[in-house]
Amino acid sequence: MGVTAHRSEDGEEVTVTVAGRFDYRVYDSFKASYASLENSQQINVDLSKTEYMDSSALGMLLMLREHVGRAVSILLVNPTPDVQRVLSIANFDKLFAIKP
């Protein structure tokens, strides 16, 4: 459960996994994962283990993008159906690349 970050062997990609709930409760650990993102070219946010997501999580995704800047691409990976629905309702499928 919670937020973990893992860097690829070539060092260019970082995968941030949010397992369990993605809401206010993980705000601190989500922000703490920023330290692992330095100098990465791509960030994958793995949502395959995310059981629940609300509008505070949407805010955190926007915050992440602002933090890393437009030069770094962010990919939302494998969202569960409940998470996908929230992303679609908020039009986030137009704001972020989503890889099913």
Binding site: D54, S55, L58, G59, L62, M63, V86, I89, A90
Partner: peptide
């Protein structure tokens, strides 16, 4: 905009 999404949901 970082607000209004709650009501949208």
């Amino acid at each position: 905009l970082a607000y209004g999404r709650g009501l949208l949901i």
